[in-house]
Design a protein around this nucleic acid. Structure first.
Lengths: 244, 244
DNA sequence: CGTAAAATTGAGCTGTCTCAATCAATGTGG
DNA sequence: CCACATTGATTGAGACAGCTCAATTTTACG
């Protein structure tokens, strides 16, 4: 899994990294911005930070100097309300950029919370923006990534406003499934799924109690298997129906 | 209100236009892109289309060649679900750009529905993108407009997921109030407010029946006056409390 | 002026929440 | 490596916010 010619710690997770998917490294190299580094991707920041499970990685209203990418582990971007409630805006799976908004705004207006332990790297704002300006390809890809974020946000609005609990949960599961499937992370018909029911509740605007009941109904109807931080979809057709 | 030296039909609404706010016209003129036109803004497209109340202006999945700006009248961007329900993603007041997403994607994935009668102009994609590339000012402003759209979407997600009906409605009213206040459209302590309760319901994920009850409760508590397509906030402090 | 759209009202229903108690899993320190 | 502490999941009973249905009135508009 890890190329023997390069240091393992530096390439972990990079195969599914968004930045790699964007072809960003190639462009940065083309710009002559690469730093001498044996066996790794030239544009990858040397500093990698780790985070513990259930910790807040970046706080609401914190100011960042770059765009972090989650190398390893899962996280959420969460909005914390004055009444103490919280709403998850998006689930960040390994390899994902935290949010493209940071390309144009230094201040984070929501908090990034770790689900599992993991690590991230921060790409420099100036470097990324320069790459965008130099390469129309990068420009379009980053902006279409931004549009992708928007699409998901819009879907979530429709879910929360106009769909029932079972529909919301089914859609959340299918969404994550599809994302991981796309990057080839289905193994034995199952995906790693470290989200707790608390996360599902906060993402769907429901209660943990009620999430538990819906999930158990899904299990009972043999739509899914969900245990040990792993998710298997048994009847994707019927699950899609519930999500319609 | 209208400068006597320029044709009234062509300048209507332009004073509060986003494009004007962006300083876009000046930049386009500086680029030598202006078209000869007596008494108007050089960069404003000559073609202006009108729409009738309650009609769909652009359909979900339609492909557009430019970025429309609502000159006159109110509209909504709405997502139509397979189960026949609809969710309003944003309320477009006069002078607003439909969505910055169209700068980077030709396909609209939601529908734009007229609330009142009105008119719009479409700015050419190529022209806008060129202006973005030439002027860092325009670039940043358009992207921060995009970020603004995102912020509103995120707020809406939190509203729908974690706030009660009264909170959602209070926040909707306050949001629109603030936007119009910012562009100086409060007159005699009231704003024009052509939204029907159906729109409020579709924007807040509620039912018209229930919206009616909440609005009447607000009226009864003398928080707002709301009739004749006009809204007056009587007790903004208490209304903000409900929205907290 | 007539018809369509919007708002209101009431009665009853249900999806989801709250509260509370219990059990299972996970993580931590000695 | 065990014992304890914390976090997470489950279950049941009861409550309520917001929905549905349906009838009626009011308002808007061609």
């Amino acid at each position: 899994m890890i190329a023997s010619s390069s240091p393992p710690t530096e390439t972990t997770g990079c195969t599914s990294c968004v930045m790699r998917g964007l072809g960003l490294c190639a462009v940065l190299i083309g710009m002559g911005l690469e730093q001498p580094y044996a066996g790794g991707h030239a544009a990858i920041p040397q500093t990698r930070s780790t985070f513990a499970a259930r910790r807040t990685i970046f706080h609401q209203n914190e100011t960042l100097a770059g765009v972090p990418v989650i190398c390893d582990g899962w996280a959420t971007s969460t909005m914390k309300l004055s009444n103490g409630r919280r709403q998850i805006l998006s689930i960040l799976v390994p390899g994902e950029l935290v949010t493209c908004r940071l390309l144009f705004e230094r201040q984070l207006h929501l908090s990034i919370d770790a689900v599992t332990r993991g690590s991230y790297r921060t790409f420099g704002l100036a470097q990324l923006r320069a790459a965008m300006m130099v390469s129309p390809g990068i420009f379009d890809r980053l902006l279409s990534a931004y549009n992708g974020e928007r699409n998901r946000a819009d879907q979530l609005i429709a879910d929360l406003g106009r769909r029932t609990a079972t529909g919301r949960i089914a859609r959340l599961l299918l969404d994550i499934w599809n994302r991981l499937e796309k990057s080839g992370e289905v193994e034995d018909g199952a995906i790693a799924f470290p989200l707790r029911q608390t996360h599902i509740a906060d993402a769907t605007g429901l209660t943990t109690v009620y999430v538990s009941k819906v999930i158990n109904a899904f299990r009972h109807d043999r739509l899914i298997e969900f245990a040990d931080r792993s998710l298997k979809i048994l009847d994707i057709k019927k699950l899609r129906q519930m999500a319609a």
